[in-house]
Computed example of a mutant assay.
Amino acid sequence: MHLERLGEVMKLYSYWRSTTSYRVRIALNLKGLSYETCPVNLVVGEQRARDYTALNPGKGVPTLVLDDGTVLTQSLAIIEYLDATVPEPPLLPTEPLRRARIQAAAQTIAMDIHPINNLKVLTHLKTQMGLTADGQLDWFRHWMTEGFAAYQDLLPKGVAFSFGDSPDLADICLVAQLYNAHRWGVDMSPFPHLLEIEERALSLAAFNDARPENQPDAA
């Protein structure tokens, strides 16, 4: 099934600064799929509204709604669905070992960095644990630095992107997370290779159009 050929227009519920939403926007753009952006303002708590939690019980973004009403949540699951239903260009290879290595790098960001740096965790640390603003920045920077070091060590040499000469799932996760790294002042001097990958990726329309600042709800 090729969604674009069927004329389907999907709805992507997202927040402009959400890195998980950023991932899905990149994937949709790489696949050449049309979608309508439905902003969910996480800062004011729209993700907790009853009509939204009926779509996404996890009270987060992104949520992808197909034109038949099918609802998908969790960015990696959404991207895997898109890759299965719209195979070109592939975001994950079929060869098992290469696929596992790309997934390991992507999960280093999606499972090791992101979950402990997202808004609800930081809000809890602030309101329940008394973490100061400086403490929050230290927390952000520490876990991103740890994760980027692990990610960089997983990469092969001599290719344009993370694992090859075209972007894949790992690059999608990396570029989205680097947005937060720049935003929160992470020292990227130990990671010049990651910045080179980011520059190449953002020169592509699929990545550039998905940037947070290019979204309709960007503040």
Rank of each mutant, 00 (worst) to 15 (best):
L169N: 01
A170W: 01
A170P: 01
D171R: 01
D171F: 00
I172V: 12
C173L: 07
L174K: 03
L174T: 00
L174E: 00
L174F: 00
L174V: 03
L174D: 00
V175G: 07
A176D: 01
Q177E: 14
L178N: 08
L178I: 09
Y179A: 13
Y179T: 09
N180Q: 10
N180S: 14
A181C: 12
H182I: 05
H182E: 11
H182K: 14
H182L: 10
R183C: 08
G185M: 08
G185E: 05
G185N: 07
G185V: 04
G185H: 08
V186C: 09
V186P: 02
D187M: 06
D187N: 14
D187Q: 13
M188R: 11
M188N: 09
S189Q: 13
P190D: 09
P190S: 12
P192Y: 07
P192F: 02
P192E: 07
P192T: 05
H193A: 15
H193D: 15
L194A: 07
L195K: 13
L195V: 11
L195S: 15
L195D: 10
L195N: 13
E196D: 15
E196T: 14
I197P: 05
I197T: 04
E198R: 10
E199P: 03
E199N: 13
E199G: 12
R200F: 01
R200C: 09
R200H: 13
A201R: 05
L202M: 15
L202D: 11
L202T: 14
L202A: 13
S203T: 14
S203M: 13
S203A: 15
S203F: 03
S203C: 14
A205V: 08
A205R: 12
A205Q: 12
A206V: 05
